[in-house]
Structures are given as C-alpha cells and as structure tokens.
Design a protein around this nucleic acid. Structure first.
Length: 589
RNA sequence: GGGGCUGUAGCUCAGUUUGGUUAGAGUGCCGGUCUGUCACACCGGAGGCCGCGGGUUCAAGUCCCGUCAGCCCCGCCA
C-alpha cells in the first residue's frame, strides 16, 4: 500500500526488519550533518524521520558531492540499502535509530528556498509567532506535532462514522447555501447572482434540515457538519467549525444519551483512554447552586454551599446588606486551604471581583485558632463552620447570578493553586432540566435559552400556555467534560401548535412565524415523528484529546482571532464588476 | 463593542524601568576545515524602517498620542 512509482517505504517506517533491503524513499530534508567525508540526512515524511548516510565506501562521488548542497526542507528521492548502524552510532531516541539508509542515488525533486520559519527546532526553542505559523502554514504543518494532531483528527472522524453507522445512522449531507436566520448568531451571507439583492446564508448548524430528514422518515441521521458563525473568536472558537451532528426519531432523552455516550466512549478509546458509562447527570439548577457554572469540572470535589444559616444576621455588615437586598450568602470549604498565602488569597479575591462581587471573606483554621475577617464574629466555632485543622472557608454574598460566576472562578483558582488531586480523569457529565426561556438582562424580555425548536417538558405545557415562562423547563441537555462544554441537544417540538406558542412567547406573531419558519411548520403538519438529537463540537474534542491549547492546532487552515486567513489573505475586496453583477455596491467607510 | 499582553536580524529573544557613542546573543544563512554524526565540532563572514504614523527633546528602540497586526479575556456565540 505504501509503495508507489517513486518510493518503496515511508522514512519513519524503517526498522531492523528492513535490514538488507534496497529501498527508495521520498521525503523532506529535515536536517543535514556534513562531516566532510561523511554526510548524514535526517529525512522526514509523515511517518517520521530516518537517517540517510552518504559515505565514499558506498556512495558514488557525484552523489556525495550533490548531497553536500541540498538545502533544508527540499524534497529528495533517495535510493539506498537499509543497514544496521555501527554499535556506537545507534540512536535510542529515534524509533528508526537502529538503522540507516546507505545512499547510492540522490535526486532533488523539490528544491526549497531557505524556510522563513524553521520546521526543525532545537530542544526548548519556542515556536515561531502564531502569525508566522499561519502565514507559512505549509511549513508549520510539516512539524511532527501538527502531523500527529491531524492524524488523530482523521482517526476520530473515521471512528465517529463507524460507531454511528453501526448504530444504524445514515450519513446525509445538507446544503451549505441556506436561508438566513435573523435570530441566533450572525450569519455569513452569500449573495445570489441569479437573484440580485437576495442572499443565501452559510449554515450555523444543519438544525432544520435534520428535523426535515426525521419528518422524511430517515429515522437516524448523522453528519460531520461544517458550521459557520460570524461571531467574535476565542482560543476554543473558530468562525467555521465541525460538529458531529445527529438526530433520531422515536426517541427520548435516554436514547440520545445512549447514542452520544457510545460515540464519546469510542472517540476516547481511539485516543487511548478508557471511559466508563453511564455518564454523570446533574440538573442545571444544581450545577449553578453547587458549582456556579453550567459546565462544572467534576474532576474535583470542591462544592459551593449556602452559608446563610451560619453567617446570616450575625452583624457582618456586607452580608446583612446583601441579604436585605434579596441576595444569599454562599461560599465553599476548602480542605487544606489554610496553606494559601495572603497574597494568593488576594489574587483569588481579585479574580472573583472581576466577576462583580464586592469581596471575598475568609475564615481560616490553624490548630484550634480561627483567623480572617469572619473570625471576629461572636460565637463562631470551628465545628460550627465545619472546618478541620488547615481548612479554609471562602464566603461572599449577593445575587445568585453574580456570586455563581464569581464562586465558579474562585473554585477553579483554588483547584489550580492547591494542585488538588482529581477524583477521576474523565469526568463526563450530562446537564439536564434547563429552563426553556431566560430573561435578557437589559430589556428584561424573555428570550430563547437554546433554539426555538427545543421542546418544553410535557408537564410544563400548562405553564407555557399560562405564560408562566420562567416555570417552563426544556427537554434540553448539554454534555460537559472536565469543565468543557462539548455539545448540546434536545428533544424537538413536533406539535406545530406548540411551536407557534413558543415562537409567540418570544414575540414572534403567528403570521411572522408562518413566513419565517413556514417550511418547518408545514413539515410538522405533514406527519412528524417525535425526534431529538445532539451536536458535538468536534474540533474541541480533538483539541482536548490531542492535548492542544488552541483549536488552531487541530485545524489545518484556521482563522486568526480577527477571523482572517493569513495564508490566503482572506477576506479580501472583490472586483467592482463582480459586485455589480451581484447588484451590490460598497459604501465608503 | 471593551480590557490586557506582545511587536527589535530569516527565526527565538535580551536591551525600554533611569532617553545619550557604532543596537546585542543564540540559532538559521553564506564561505572554509573535518570519515560515525544525530542541537556534529571548529574558523571566518554577511544580515536591522527597533510594526507603522505623528509628537516631545539638543538627542527616541527607550517618553507621549494615534494606528495596524497577532494572541488572551469580557460582551457576543438562539
């Protein structure tokens, strides 16, 4: 399979078993060591690196001479014989280090100019600036680390296909040119030449299509779907990204959990990790209450508690004020937290304050003595506070939506600074029972917490009809892994009347709803099976399994944080004539 | 939209705190010596719009203002 017209083996594949074979290799000159009489090449291809040696005893003089002039990163074809290296010259750090290829022929088929960024680096040398790595992407991708990441990505993609095919899912492609959606993320628009003044949008997700496929009776669908959102970026967010998108009919949440868990367990297995099932589950409310986050990292046991009974009405001014304003006193007991220095605590408090709380009160137990601002309160005893020797209590007060975010940040800080031992390595977690609607902070209006097609819980339908929107829970679920949101899904609305009610609740009158979502409503009226599904953020999965810090390291050609492609220099202006044919005129800035 | 960090040789970085002769190092590159290297070794050399624009000053890599780019975070991401 490896052998082709121009080569017999891949460089990185050669082992002692190949000794004696005459081989032909094609690869990039990673590094050259010229000792005068002897010349060594480290020859690299996607499989790895092998040493090629040129010496007067086995290499013709003209070839030896040519070998002295090949520049780094040039592509060469080499013919030679695999030989064991002299005993003293073996390199245990290379998988091919027991052998070398003694060259008899050399042809430079792809000479390279001196590379602007190095592919080879000395030990401990920093990577080139990200800007240069993206600009010269074909060189950056030659680094073995990038090869490993993209090879892993490939294997994970194939594994996902395999599992879902096994589970009787069809892989079905959906359009990239679709209808703009006014709600949700901003769309990337594509002008139509045939219909000047009209636009397609690139899909933010194949959401509606997959629902139509369920109505069509395909029963189980999946797609390794490219999605596009014109929003500001982060290290873990790209404007175009890949989802493992799936949808199934005649299912409840348990079925969806089962499908997704099967996929995840297989992907983790592909990366060499054993993961147990079923995954943990937690209600959204409990996640916010005990972890201050809808994506808690359950590798660590630290929990947030309501400390109102302990500190309420004790005359601690800021607490009492907060409670009078309708807030609560919450905090966490940190076993061993007394070892945190004053400076560390100040820094943790500063992080918390960036999330809007006034401050972080502490109570520290060392031996039998209590210290910290809260120790001054009358009648506070260690037992009462639940503190053992060396423990620390961190407390704040205020509105839940502020203290939750702050305590979440505090929790992560404490975990990091105390280097707490994880109680498990792979903490998968389902978050359930999300509210269907939430209030927008500024306008105080109800908005979708998820997307408009998420079904309410059947038992909450009366509340929906009663316009008690705050009481309606969604059949929506998020998948969380070690504090990272990996994806989300839901059971969808299949009753057109419920769909209209939900849209109405969001201030979309029936007439508008029929116009904007008519094709979906029509589909729902044409015999729609109960269905639901999920979408996994695949790039993020690859990033975590590759141990990468950024999505850019697991995507071959990513965009910058300003959504630019440096390699090809896009986006770019276009010819006015082309714009004119689209009926588009650019106004000056 | 807002905040932060970074920008000096092809690359990775010192130098900016406290303005002051000719801006350094490692690596890479070029030339030379070298038969067992694998960060080969040794000798020699070239290489700079100090991101860009403006200002302060006798004098700016260094101080001030603006701007561009990359990265990180908040908002945003139904």
């Amino acid at each position: 399979m490896t052998a082709t017209a121009l080569r017999t083996h891949r460089c990185g594949a050669l082992r002692e078993a190949h000794v004696g074979l005459e081989v032909r290799l094609g690869g990039w000159l990673h590094r050259r060591r010229d000792l005068g009489g002897l010349i060594f090449f480290d020859l690299r291809d996607r499989a790895g690196i092998v040493q090629v040696s040129f010496g007067p005893d086995w290499t013709p003089a003209a070839v030896l001479e040519a070998a002295a002039t090949v520049g780094p990163e040039s592509v060469v074809l080499v013919r030679g014989v695999v030989q064991p290296r002299p005993e003293a010259a073996r390199n245990p750090e290379m998988v091919t280090g027991q052998v070398e290829v003694r060259a008899t022929q050399l042809e430079v088929v792809g000479p390279a100019v001196t590379p602007p960024i190095p592919v080879w680096r000395t030990k401990g040398e920093d990577l080139p600036a990200e800007e240069l790595r993206l600009l010269h992407r074909q060189l950056d991708l030659r680094r073995p680390e990038m090869e490993r990441n993209l090879a892993l990505r490939h294997r994970l993609l194939q594994r996902a296909r395999g599992v879902l095919t096994e589970l009787e899912f069809y892989e079905i492609e959906t359009p990239m040119l679709t209808r703009p959606t006014p709600e949700g993320a901003r769309d990337y628009l594509v002008p139509s030449r045939v219909h000047p003044g009209q636009f397609y949008a690139l899909p933010q997700s194949p959401q509606i299509y997959k629902q139509l496929l369920m109505v069509a009776g395909f029963d189980r669908y999946f797609q390794l779907a490219r999605c596009f959102r014109d929003e500001d970026l982060r290290a873990d967010r790209q404007p175009e990204f890949t989802q493992i998108d799936l949808e199934a009919s005649f299912v409840g949440p348990e079925d969806v959990y089962g499908f997704v868990e099967a996929v995840m367990v297989n992907l983790w297995d592909e990366a060499g990790h054993e993961v147990g099932r079923p995954f943990h589950r937690m209600a959204f409310h409990d996640a916010m209450e005990h972890y201050g986050s809808d994506k808690p990292d359950l590798r660590y046991e630290l929990k947030i508690e309501d400390l109102g009974d302990l500190f309420g009405g004790r005359g601690f001014r800021v607490f009492d004020t907060a409670v009078e304003a309708g807030g609560r006193i919450r905090g966490m007991r940190v076993p061993g937290g007394a070892q945190l220095s004053r400076k560390a605590l100040d820094e943790i408090a500063a992080v918390a304050q960036r999330h809007g709380i006034g401050g972080l009160a502490t109570l520290k137990r060392t031996g039998d003595s209590l210290t910290g601002p809260l120790a001054k309160l009358p009648d506070i005893a260690s037992e009462q506070a639940g503190l053992k020797d060396g423990d620390l209590l961190l407390v704040t007060a205020g509105a839940d939506n502020v203290t939750s975010a702050a305590l979440d940040a505090v929790r992560l800080q404490v975990i990091q600074r105390l280097e707490l031992e994880p109680v498990e390595q792979h903490a998968f977690l389902w978050i359930e029972d999300f509210p269907l609607f939430e209030r927008e902070l500024e306008s105080d209006e109800w908005i979708f917490a998820h997307h408009p097609f998420t079904a309410p819980r059947p038992e909450d339908l009366p509340a929906l009809l009663d316009r008690q929107y705050g009481d309606v829970k969604a059949q929506h679920y998020d998948l969380v892994y070690n504090g990272n949101e990996l994806g989300s899904g839901s059971i969808r609305i299949t009753d057109p009347e419920v769909q209209l009610r939900v849209l109405e609740a969001m201030g979309i009158p029936r007439a508008d709803a029929e116009r904007r979502f008519g094709f979906l409503l029509t589909a729902l009226r044409s015999g729609a099976p109960p269905h639901g599904g999920f979408a996994v953020g695949f790039d993020r999965v690859v990033m975590l399994l590759a141990g990468a810090d950024s999505l850019r390291d697991v995507i071959a050609f990513p965009k910058t944080t300003a959504a630019r492609a440096l390699f090809e220099d896009s986006p770019s202006p276009v010819d006015p004539a082309e714009l004119a044919s689209l009926g588009i005129e650019i106004r000056g800035q």
